[in-house]
Computed example of a mutant assay.
Amino acid sequence: MPVEHVVVMGVAGSGKTTVGRLLAERLARPYAEADAFHPPENVAKMAAGTPLTDDDRAPWLAAIRDWLTARARDGQDTVVTCSALKVAYRDVLRDAEGRVRFLHLSGPGELIADRMAHRAGHFMPTSLLPSQLATLEPLTDAEDGVTVVVDVPPADVVERALRALHPDGPV
């Protein structure tokens, strides 16, 4: 069976980090936070409220893809978070070795904005949420993925995700 990577995707504030960590723990897989792959210039732009361009994102996405491939070569299934807002961004990630699946965390804009307003220590300001929502391209039928609504506590989101990702039984 091929190595499986689950990319927990969605706009800022959708719960990627929390759900990704819980999912990785539940599945006993290595976990990576995509924010850690950003070069300092990207972090500075976002902290200043400036949306990233596709050119800004290219090396970041390549670094995540390469991390996935390295884990696949070690025979490790993984969980990684990444906004992966556009199909073109997800195409870069799908070039990783192994089966790359997407878990799109979705929810009403008001709920996500409220979450962003109440979190501490993150460089992404709430002012960038509208640009993220405008950029978001939903998963297509050609992509290996599922969408889960985040209107329940994180542990329940993980349960929804596991049922959606593995509908034929326990993981």
Rank of each mutant, 00 (worst) to 15 (best):
P167R: 01
V100G: 11
A63W: 12
A164C: 09
D156G: 14
H118G: 13
A164R: 06
R26V: 07
H118W: 11
A24I: 08
A96V: 08
L27Q: 05
V146S: 03
P39V: 13
T78L: 01
A32F: 10
R26I: 05
G75M: 13
V157K: 07
V6N: 00
Y89P: 02
V150H: 03
P40T: 04
D141C: 09
A161C: 06
G109T: 04
S106P: 13
C82F: 09
L85R: 00
G107H: 05
S127A: 15
D114N: 10
Q76A: 12
M116C: 07
L61D: 08
D151L: 03
V150E: 01
R29I: 05
V171N: 13
R65V: 07
T126M: 05
V79D: 04
V152T: 14
D66S: 14
A88F: 15
V19P: 01
D141E: 14
G169T: 11
A113D: 01
V158R: 02
V87C: 10
R160L: 07
R29V: 09
R71S: 13
G121P: 04
S83A: 10
T78A: 09
V148D: 01
A120P: 03
L111A: 07
G15I: 04
P40Q: 03
K45F: 11
A34H: 11
A36W: 10
L111G: 00
A96E: 01
D35V: 03
T50I: 15
H38R: 05
V43Q: 01
P153R: 00
L103V: 10
E33T: 10
P154G: 08
P51K: 09
A62K: 09
A96G: 14
D35M: 05
V146L: 00
D151R: 06
V149T: 14
L136Q: 02
D56S: 04
G98C: 00
Y89W: 11
P138N: 05
M124I: 02
E159A: 10
T126V: 11
A134P: 13
R160V: 04
H122R: 05
R101V: 08
V6Q: 04
L52M: 05
L103W: 07
I112Q: 07
Y89K: 04
P138F: 11
A12T: 06
V149I: 12
L139M: 09
V92N: 04
L52G: 02
D55S: 15
G10Q: 02
D35L: 00
G75R: 12
C82W: 00
V80R: 08
L133N: 06
A72W: 05
P30I: 03
L105D: 00
S127T: 04
W60R: 03
A32Y: 10
R115D: 03
A36F: 11
A58L: 14
R99F: 12
A164P: 02
G107Q: 00
R29Q: 07
A164H: 03
E159H: 15
E41D: 15
R163E: 06
V8G: 00
D144P: 08
P39S: 06
R115E: 01
V7A: 04
G20F: 00
A134I: 02
V79N: 06
V171C: 13
A58Y: 11
W60Q: 02
D141S: 14
